[in-house]
Design a protein around this nucleic acid. Structure first.
Lengths: 188, 188
DNA sequence: AAAGATTGAATTATCAATCTTG
DNA sequence: CAAGATTGATAATTCAATCTTT
């Protein structure tokens, strides 16, 4: 009879269990993978609850933080004119249709403004409103505070080790995922 | 001009950058937290693409794998009669309304069956169909194979270290999240 | 025709309300 | 009334189709 003060995540437990039935498939790798998802999930939940309490979904938060700094894909600094919906969609990793919907509700709530691009009339420019900047400057410190709580049990050395290992995983996964994402401009 | 063969995740880059402007808020913790989310995100994407290609969403996959083994919250083994929608919702961490919808489409697609509970007529029992068991036995090996690919760059020792660190984070986050999840039965 | 933005249908998710049963 | 399951309204997400502009 296990002590269930800390409830587990059965959907991961099931798979960690199932992976052991495939010894030819590198069980230690599967175990590490599922632990990554489980910890990421639980950590994300902690951050998300804070955002949800402020009526900010994952997608909305991505849009706001991307607009905070410009952050165009090519690294060029263009803070003034804002970003286009297409740039936001690429950087937030959602489809353009999703981004249209996110901008709709953010505009309705007074967090962003749409402006027609002066040079290319197909494009829109999305900008933060002062209300959004105010909102973010209130929210971000407590948001980072919550991140720090989750990581408080790790020493500086452990954090460095963790970041190093996570980076290795990230780069490998990004490499595996790259062909899928590179569907932007085929060569025909 | 950076070499963009591996596209970055600007929504995390922005925050990692922003966290450095709050030196009083434990920047190394925030950095580690965001690296966890970024790696988890990218790893999850790799697994998800495989599931999506087989018409299986995150929620659907959770339901199928939970039903594979029973997996009731209290650890009791009850493989025969299946699980109730409430148990599935708790274990998959979605609301009961969401679970109703997931079971609807899974039933429509022939993966699960609903049966009325013989003892308590408020409850339903959800079971896997043979079609679903066949489907899972085809899918799981390649699913685990993809997990292994992502982790292939880590040695056994690194995997052990990683799991240990992730466990520390998971337990801390679960502890922080527990009060939020324990809203099941208030005492009035 | 190609690119940017949007719209429409479908799925997954939430909460709040409702219906059935205990 | 409690509890389990569902339904209805809304949001976020996807894909496919459409509309405007280049």
């Amino acid at each position: 009879m296990p002590h269930l003060l800390i409830k587990d995540l059965p959907r991961y437990e099931c798979l960690i269990e199932a992976a052991k039935h495939y010894p030819e498939l590198d069980p230690s790798a599967c175990e590490a993978f599922l632990h990554l998802l489980r910890a990421g999930d639980e950590a994300f939940l902690h951050a998300e609850q804070h955002l949800t309490a402020h009526n900010i979904s994952h997608g909305r938060f991505s849009v706001l933080t991307l607009l905070m700094k410009g952050c165009p894909t090519d690294g060029s600094k263009a803070p003034g004119p804002g970003l286009t919906p297409a740039e936001l969609a690429d950087n937030a990793r959602v489809t353009r249709a999703t981004m249209t919907g996110l901008i709709d509700t953010l505009e309705r709530d007074g967090f962003v403004r749409r402006e027609a691009d002066t040079h290319d009339r197909r494009m829109m420019r999305v900008c933060l409103t002062p209300k959004a900047r105010e909102f973010l400057s209130q929210l971000l410190p407590s948001h980072f505070q919550r991140m720090a709580e989750v990581m408080s049990g790790l020493s500086e050395a452990e954090r460095r080790t963790l970041v190093e290992l996570l980076n290795k995983i990230y780069l490998r996964a990004a490499e595996l995922n790259t062909p899928v994402r590179a569907v932007a401009s085929p060569n025909t």
